[in-house]
């Protein structure tokens, strides 16, 4: 007779059941439903119709492109600014801990609140940003009303909101670098610039991997900020996959909406998995 383990598998059951029913089942089901004409009343098999539509209808294809642009733009900015801010906020400057709190606080604030706030601040004529620009003689753009600018404006707000988390992760990463490296580099005559590029950047790599991957996933999945600020507009100029999914669901095109979901899933998997493997491999080489 096998004695029972003190770590029984049934401990996994409560969480496992909830996770399986509310996450895994819908995820698996989405592959089937994405192949159907599905509305609140019926689901008929449709083959790859939904997917075809996604890439042939300009306003849907635009959503796919915008998702990529948005994710790459925000992830890149968060990575670069996060590292610079982290270096600044670990250099022992006056008010360092206060500054860390100030930079981090927006991470905790309701995204909808931030979105509505900036929607007002970015108002073309009455918003505080353009009023301030006007005071110094600059004619501010229609941040959210100009179709070629709207997506970028939302991306900037997302960076404003999320850079604190990147900074925090980088600060934790910088704390793991032994001061010996910097002292050795200084004895070898390295300038501050050289220390940054030759010591900090390579040694903080694990944090960089984390920041890039987290912010890419977040960027690809983002919905609430865009919905609060532009609802994908003007027109479809700032639509991303997540907002398209919601709009199609609202319009009753459940199959199309689900196909969008699957595309988003594949996009994330195809982008993140190779990237994570690549970044982790280079990390292991260090």
């Amino acid at each position: 007779m096998q004695r029972r383990s003190p770590y029984p598998y049934w401990f996994l059951l409560p969480a496992g059941t909830i996770f399986a029913v509310f996450f895994l089942v819908p995820t698996v089901a989405s592959f089937y439903f994405s192949l159907t004409y599905w509305d609140p009343f019926e689901a008929r098999f449709a083959g790859f119709e939904n997917y075809q539509q996604f890439f042939s209808e300009p306003f849907l294809a635009r959503g796919v492109m915008n998702t990529l642009i948005f994710a790459v733009l925000t992830s890149g900015l968060k990575t670069v600014l996060g590292l610079l801010l982290a270096v600044l906020l670990t250099s022992g400057l006056l008010g360092q801990s206060l500054l860390r709190s100030v930079v981090f606080f927006p991470v905790l604030v309701s995204t909808i609140g931030v979105g509505l706030l900036f929607q007002e601040l970015m108002h073309p004529t009455e918003g505080a940003i353009n009023v301030a620009l006007e005071a110094v003689g600059i004619d501010g753009p229609g941040w959210l009303t100009n179709p070629s600018l709207a997506l970028v404006s939302v991306a900037l707000v997302d960076v404003w909101r999320g850079v604190g988390l990147a900074t925090l992760i980088y600060i934790a990463g910088l704390a793991t670098i032994s001061p010996d490296y910097y002292e050795a580099a200084r004895i070898d005559g390295a300038t501050r610039w050289q220390q940054f590029w030759r010591v900090t950047v390579p040694l903080v790599r694990p944090a960089t991997t984390t920041v890039i991957i987290l912010s890419l996933i977040g960027g690809l999945r983002l919905f609430d900020l865009i919905w609060a600020m532009t609802r994908g507009g003007p027109g479809f100029a700032s639509d991303v996959l997540a907002s398209v999914i919601y709009k199609q669901y609202q319009a009753g095109f459940w199959g199309l909406s689900t196909a969008g979901n699957v595309i988003l899933f594949l996009l994330i998997a195809l982008l993140i998995v190779p990237l994570a493997l690549h970044l982790n491999r280079r990390e292991a080489d260090l």
């Binding site: 996450f23 819908p26 089901a29 989405s30 919601y246 669901y249 979901n261």
Partner: peptide
């Protein structure tokens, strides 16, 4: 990302 519409169906 969670599959929202299938979740609603479920």
């Amino acid at each position: 990302p969670p599959a929202v519409v299938p979740t609603i169906w479920l």
